[in-house]
Amino acid sequence: MTNPNPLTEADVIKVASLARLELRPDEVATFTEQLGSVLGHAQDIAALNLEGLSPMAHPFDLENVLREDVVTPSLDRDAVLAAAPDAAEHRFRVGRILGEAP
């Protein structure tokens, strides 16, 4: 790797907390190194001379992939809820939520 690790352990702890993951100290060290090497690769690209190239929104050279506004069958509710860890009153049951959705 050509660059020093662009990621700190504090970054990893913050990202883990946003994703609701609880990491042990040795895991924080492992992921700091692994994620750092991914970001390091991105830095390699940033080091290239990209003048005159426009940013790429998607690797495929496609746009406006659209479907008509026509109803297609939904899944059977019993089958859907049978796959859920918990259900009640024909709805998914989940644990207590802290705060509210955006």
């Binding site: 009640a88 709805r91 998914f92 049951r93 989940v94 644990g95 207590r96 939520i97 509210e100």
Partner: peptide, 10 residues
């Protein structure tokens, strides 16, 4: 939400 012990989702 505050004080709820579980939620049902549709």
């Amino acid at each position: 939400i505050h004080g709820a012990d579980s939620s049902l989702i549709d």
